[in-house]
Amino acid sequence: MHHFRHIFTTFAIKNGMAIHEVMEALNHKSASMTEVYIDAGDYPKEMMRIVLSGEMVVSSTNRNVVECIESNDNPFKGTTTDQAEKLWRATKIEILPHGFCLHHPLRGDPCAQDGVCLGCQYFLVPTDRLPVFEARLQRINEELTKNSDTSIYTSKLNFQKHRLGFYVNDLQTKIAANEILQENQEVAADAERR
């Protein structure tokens, strides 16, 4: 059922349906729940190559996946766009509007299908999604400030806040570390030229 809701929402937004109308159709309590579908499907094949080859910083709760992508022994380094596309189709990696799902029901370990990607060990977030996650985290914090009740909705917002906070902090830390590394490499290159 969730998969069909996802397809409907993705195509509705891509074809110009107003977000508040989509929100109402899905019975979402806030626009932040609906906005994760914005830009769905706009990842080009090149994005898959960049992510798998380790050229883009990624975050996941699954440290094995992250270590494989970040390692010097990453088997996907040097992968062409066509090779990445074939790998993507063969492994059934699902490109979502807010990241990548490395998990597929055909593997015998079906997804809960309840929209909790943020807590799934098979969920991978590339750096280009950081602004989306930061904006969602800010809106969730604002909503939590307004709502002091202990409803299921508030519990879900707190869960999302915790998970989004993990991804935002992890990506920001990795980006800062990469910037320092690049600066050090530039300083070393300048010193070598002199």
Rank of each mutant, 00 (worst) to 15 (best):
A135V: 02
H98T: 10
Q83K: 09
Q138M: 11
R89D: 06
L130I: 01
R136F: 02
P44L: 11
V125F: 07
P110R: 09
A84E: 06
V51I: 14
L96V: 02
T80L: 07
L52M: 15
C120I: 01
T91D: 04
L102A: 03
E143A: 13
R136T: 03
L87E: 03
R139H: 11
C120A: 04
V116R: 09
L106Q: 08
Q121R: 12
I152P: 00
E143Q: 14
K146I: 12
M56A: 10
K92E: 08
F76R: 09
P110D: 11
V57F: 07
R129P: 01
P44I: 02
L52C: 13
L106V: 13
N62H: 05
D149N: 12
Q121K: 12
K92A: 07
I140H: 13
C68N: 02
T127I: 11
T61Y: 09
E55W: 01
L137C: 05
T145S: 15
E67W: 02
S59L: 08
E85D: 08
T145G: 14
P75V: 03
V125K: 09
L144C: 10
L124T: 01
F133G: 04
E70Y: 07
V116Y: 01
K86I: 00
N72Y: 01
E70N: 14
P44A: 10
V51F: 06
S60M: 09
S151C: 06
T145N: 15
W88N: 09
Q121S: 11
K45Q: 13
E46S: 14
K92W: 06
D128Y: 14
R107A: 14
Y122C: 03
K92F: 03
